[in-house]
């Protein structure tokens, strides 16, 4: 049997699902919850693997991990609808996620952080891709690194080399994340002036928000 994934013909066996077939054919479909061993009990929860059925089934979005292959099936894994839906899903997940990337064990190797970057969703700081957790964070060495409050997407280019992040990708707008960052700065002994001075260089427009938050945090 053959199905079309993004227009590419893929060989498959009856009983397989689209996600399997895609993986076999080197087509990447992101998942957060899929696990072959338990997919029967907990199917299709994260919805990240959705694809758009173009032909050969009920048109619309379906989770590929539960979509059985059928003759004449044609799906798209990267249509606009799929992209939008996934992006929204990431935002929703982010909204209930404690983004304390700096203290997270899987920082630098996080599937979710990667998805955030892939789908250009605001919200994860540079720490999420920074490998320094293992050798010691720059902040703990007394270097003012703006990583915790800066947009990730640079693959932690500077901190990887041991240089502090200067927030060239601009300060994040998600206040929850900023909060974690500010606490980290405070713990490392930096003052409000230090932080504002450093952040001014690339994110002058965000400084006001930052200042407000710092005041709020320090008061607590």
């Amino acid at each position: 049997m053959k199905i079309l994934i993004d227009g590419k013909g893929c060989e498959c066996q009856p009983g397989q699902n689209v996600l399997d077939v895609a993986t076999e054919n080197g087509i990447d479909i992101p998942t957060l919850c899929f696990n072959k061993l338990i997919s029967d009990i907990r199917p299709a929860g994260c919805r990240m693997c959705i694809v758009e059925v173009l032909a050969g089934g009920r048109p619309g979005l379906e989770s590929s991990c539960t979509l059985p292959v059928t003759d004449g099936l044609s799906v798209s894994t990267k249509s606009q609808a799929v992209y939008n839906e996934r992006r929204e899903l990431i935002e929703l997940l982010l909204s209930e996620h404690e983004q304390d990337c700096r203290n997270c064990a899987i920082s630098g190797d996080c599937n979710f952080a990667k998805l955030c970057r892939d789908y250009d969703v605001d919200g994860v700081p540079v720490c999420s891709e920074c490998p320094n957790q293992k050798e010691g964070c720059l902040l703990s060495r007394g270097v003012l690194c703006l990583g915790p409050i800066t947009y990730a997407n640079c693959n932690a280019f500077c901190t990887r080399k041991g240089d502090p992040c200067e927030s060239c990708f601009s300060v994040l707008s998600n206040e929850d994340v900023l909060k974690f960052g500010i606490r980290a700065f405070a713990k490392a002994g930096f003052t409000k002036e230090d932080i504002i001075e450093a952040a001014k260089v690339f994110s002058y427009d965000r400084v006001k928000v930052l200042e407000k938050l710092i005041i709020k945090e320090e008061l607590r």
């Binding site: 907990r42 299709a44 929860g45 994260c46 919805r47 929204e88 929703l92 997940l93 209930e96």
Partner: peptide, 12 residues
């Protein structure tokens, strides 16, 4: 609470 859009989406 199984799937993301319904669990988080409705709450949001």
């Amino acid at each position: 609470g199984q799937c993301t859009p319904c669990r988080v989406g409705t709450t949001r």
